[in-house]
Design a protein around this nucleic acid. Structure first.
Lengths: 352, 352
DNA sequence: CATCCTTGCTAAACCGCGTTAGCATTGGAT
DNA sequence: ATCCAATGCTAACGCGGTTTAGCAAGGATG
């Protein structure tokens, strides 16, 4: 099909030198090894003219570096939300001349193991182990065979891996501040968890940290949360149910929904109760789901920085690969990526 | 970091045989080359016990097969719609023990070229060249260096590559049939293109083929389309504008929107005009956007089979790699993947 | 004149595996 | 006793690069 690739030997022959010399020159070590300028030019010209491209596979065999990393996730690629995570990773990798293997484990640990093995068998330089939503995971043994980074996931037990996660606590603070700055001081309810930090869905770190941030800001301002409702799955139906139940017994002035899907459900319950957003009830939320700017009124939400998470995971991975043990020795670095606030139309001053 | 990988030499030494023998046995050619049963057992046991895994990179260097394929797209990974395409490809690849490189060109032909080179440099066995939406593309020269398949794209000029695309014409027929079977015979308007098959957005094959299917079924039933409006970008705003303009001069009984986003806009225009879907106006559409089952009433639409497209692209690629020149010699195979109809609530009998 | 250093390049080993030609041994047939 | 075929395994090369030790020639030094 293809006219055989040009190899280093071809170039060397054309330039009338040995493979060694050609290799040294083309990998930029020519001067270091005292190859004369004339010969260097000759080799480069030949390579250029013949369209020579080094075979990364064979080089990798020798050097151990394949300029390739793996991206393994539970099911990240599929969901639009987190497709951006991959995009960020791809682009950051591209900036370093690195290509990405991609794989999904679908939560099946057999598959996960096979996938990690497959990547090791292909000599990847490192692996990004990602989760669709921020949660506690147990780090698979197989992962430790090369450099690796946890993305959007924190280890259940102490592990030697760096971690890249959204800064959920700061996001919680931001959400609370939005309401306080709009003048809310009472009737603030949390939908999805709370009001206490232990009343959260299992393994969800987002819930805990968001609550911590929310409570911290409120406490500092002398404001007490009016209540909170635990939802196990954070789907619209649960947001709807939780809000309807809440409305049956109280008159909230503001809702902090712990993610956008809960907020969508809350919108519907509020609408059913003929309460208007934001005039009767302000709503603030987390994630910045694509729908958040579609629904009316547009939802004010603290965005998950998926793209940035992907980029930073690659950065962290390369720091790891290159053995830059940053920060405190002993503890592994935890990179918290800022979650930007998207100010839209679902928050207003409380009515008097 | 990791305790050096176990190599074939290690296993051979442990089993007290030569590397050749170990290689033959472990690659299943032991009996063929008359290695005794006892020795075979010994080698396999040693490999098992030592956790030996063959290094695919080095094997690839020798055999030319890396058990790796590339997936290059304009921007497929990001959009939820087409994330499923990747998922299908990943899973089909996994079934064959193959891993996927992924890359996005973002429509930049420099990037695209670099990406394809990067994959060739890593000796991929083949490449799936995908487009986010079905359209005509010019096949980059670089793509022809290995086996390749066009996914969701058709070549502008004759090319030696197999093609995998959704069966848009049949989808058009399905959409038209839905309306005809509901009893519609007049006031059927097309939003997005038409009514003639030449009145379509540039490079869009979906528009042409869907129209062909629609017109074919209508003509066969003796029904004439009442009109059509060309939209360049198929975004909600355009669907909204087109429908509003249409309503200003006519009273449609049914809308065939050429994709769901146009339909979302149409919904809004109909709502503004106090027309109810489906009682006053039926709406049928294409793509099955995730939102299509969210909006009220739920949208009846002909789905793009993204997952299946991804799977079939891998199948086609391997047929190509293995030199199975299927079907008609001379012409390259075009695989048309059926688009399933999702019957929901936006179509009803016309009011009398 | 012998020694040493510098310059400019190459031979050869190596990475981990696949593959083929062929060697040594045995048993049976002649 | 000789020849042949079958059996059971290995030596050795190749894939396409990288890397190190070292060779040859020329000039400077003592």
């Amino acid at each position: 099909m293809s006219p055989r690739r040009v190899t280093l030997a071809d170039v060397a022959a054309a330039a009338g030198v040995s493979r060694s010399t050609a290799s040294l020159v083309l990998s930029g070590r020519g001067s270091e090894l005292r190859i004369s300028g004339a010969v260097q030019e000759r080799i480069k010209a030949a390579a250029q003219e013949m369209g020579y491209r080094p075979n990364i596979v064979s080089a990798g065999l020798r050097t151990g570096r394949t300029l390739t990393i793996g991206f393994v996730s539970d099911t990240v690629a599929t969901t639009r939300l987190a497709g951006d995570m991959i995009k960020g990773a791809i682009e950051a990798a591209r900036d370093r001349g690195v290509l990405l293997f991609i794989g999904e484990s679908e939560g099946d640990s057999k598959l996960e193991h096979a996938l990690l093995q497959g990547m090791h068998d292909r000599q990847v330089d490192g692996i990004i182990f990602a989760s669709m939503y921020t949660r506690r995971i147990s780090v698979p043994e197989t992962l430790l065979a090369t450099s690796a980074v946890l993305l959007n996931a924190v280890p259940k037990t102490p592990s030697p891996l760096p971690v890249v996660v959204p800064d959920e606590t700061e996001a919680g603070r931001a959400a609370a501040r939005v309401l306080l700055e709009a003048g809310h001081r009472e009737g603030i309810h949390v939908i999805g968890a709370g009001p206490g930090v232990r009343n959260v869905p299992r393994d969800s770190v987002a819930a805990v940290e968001r609550l911590v941030g929310i409570r911290e800001v409120c406490t500092a301002a002398g404001v007490e949360l009016a209540g909170g409702t635990l939802c196990a799955d954070w789907q619209p139906e649960e947001g709807f149910a939780a809000t309807r139940n809440l409305l049956a017994r109280a008159r909230p002035r503001a809702l902090i929904c712990l993610n956008d899907r809960l907020a969508f459900g809350a919108y519907q319950a509020l609408d059913d109760a003929s309460l208007s957003v934001p005039d009767d009830v302000s709503v603030v939320s987390f994630d910045d789901h694509p729908l958040a700017s579609w629904i009316r009124p547009k939802l004010t939400t603290v965005a998950l920085p998926h793209y940035e998470l992907g980029r930073r995971a690659v950065d962290a991975l390369f720091a790891e690969i290159n053995g830059e043990h940053s920060g405190t020795p002993g503890g592994k670095p935890v990179h918290r990526i800022p979650m930007p606030l998207r100010t839209r139309s679902s928050v207003a001053r409380p009515r008097c």
